[in-house]
């Protein structure tokens, strides 16, 4: 299945892109997505193993199961205001 991963702030610097389309096996979780990204190369090790994420605009746990077309945003510590 295809997942859209979004990156912001420091995570965007790590990814070198604001969004990536990622192919994952059916039934994969957010954890699997994180592992898949971190295995892409040395620079990706800067992405935390347990980052805050939002699935389809809602903060979600890493165990969350993903579905085709889900949008997963990697949320570095926020600093609005």
């Amino acid at each position: 299945m295809q997942i859209k991963a979004l990156f912001f702030a420091t995570y965007r610097d790590i990814a070198g892109a604001d969004e990536l389309e990622v192919q994952l096996p059916t039934g994969a979780s957010v954890d699997d997505l994180v592992a898949s990204l971190r295995s892409r190369g040395e620079g990706w090790q800067a992405l935390p193993e347990k980052p805050a994420v939002a699935v389809n605009l809602t903060y979600s746990k890493l165990a969350t199961a993903l579905s085709e077309g889900d949008e997963v945003a990697f949320i570095p510590p926020v600093s609005g205001g």
Partner: peptide, 26 residues
Amino acid sequence: LKKRVPIWKREGYLDGESEWLRGSTP
């Protein structure tokens, strides 16, 4: 808002450096 709205700020310093601020983890 400061704790959990997904907004980030990068400070640009007068010495030419810039840095994303370390904030709250939602």
